[in-house]
């Protein structure tokens, strides 16, 4: 009986652990429905012809995320037509940081002329599913028979300041490799970013 408790406890704790970990490369992603800045909802399944997705956790206020805004737009411009649209998700809580409000998201999307959805995740549900921990944080998915599979997790490139001509474009490289029917050579990277502003209390 004691053993059973112990096993139960281990199962529960490993489950909790797995939840905080989020997706790893190779995991199947559960689809979601979140509200876009145009007040319509967006799900991955809406993209009938997509070969995959560039899911970008980004926000209104983080200086690193802001430095990458134009590069995210450029990714959508280059890869949406190739079957890999950008789906941007704001993981931050507007109660904690007022400038992360839905209205401010709408204003940013308008100002920057976002050609991709910019979704709000007010209760961090999708953010926690993915295990996104910062902005910007990219997950490249590919659509397979098994579902949408995580192919790459990490940074857009290795040069947030965008000053190094020899920078490595991790996301572009991964997308080019996927488009050629290969697995990304570099499937995960790390970069400094802003912590997610979780709901307090």
């Amino acid at each position: 009986m004691k053993n059973l408790f112990l096993i139960g406890f281990i199962l529960i704790s490993s489950h909790v652990f797995a939840q905080t970990q989020g997706y790893q490369v190779g995991d199947v992603v559960r689809d979601f429905t979140l509200k876009n800045v145009d007040n319509k909802t967006v799900s991955l399944a809406d993209y009938k012809d997509a070969k995959g997705y560039i899911v970008v956790f980004t926000c209104n206020t983080c200086p690193v995320a802001k430095a990458y805004q134009d590069r995210v737009s450029a990714l959508n411009a280059s890869y949406e037509s190739k079957g890999y649209p950008v789906v941007a998700i704001n993981p931050n809580d507007a109660g904690t940081v007022p400038d992360e409000s839905f209205e401010k998201m709408q204003a940013l999307a308008k100002e920057k002329n976002f050609s991709f959805p910019y979704l709000s995740d007010p209760n961090h549900i999708v953010t926690k599913q993915f295990g996104a921990l910062k902005t910007p944080h990219v997950f490249i998915l590919s659509k397979t028979e098994k579902g949408n599979i995580v192919e790459y997790i990490g940074a857009i490139d290795n040069d947030a300041e965008d000053e190094n001509p020899d920078k490595i474009n991790y996301v572009q490289n991964a997308l080019n490799e996927l488009s050629a029917g290969k697995k990304p050579v570099i499937a995960s990277t790390k970069a400094v970013g802003c912590s997610i502003k979780w709901k307090k209390g």
């Binding site: 944080h137 290795n158 990277t189 790390k190 400094v192 970013g193 912590s195």
Partner: peptide, 19 residues
Amino acid sequence: PDQQKYIERIDKKWSGAIP
């Protein structure tokens, strides 16, 4: 110079988020 190296060297589990 290299975030890929220094983030892991400081701690393997660090995502790179600050603080």
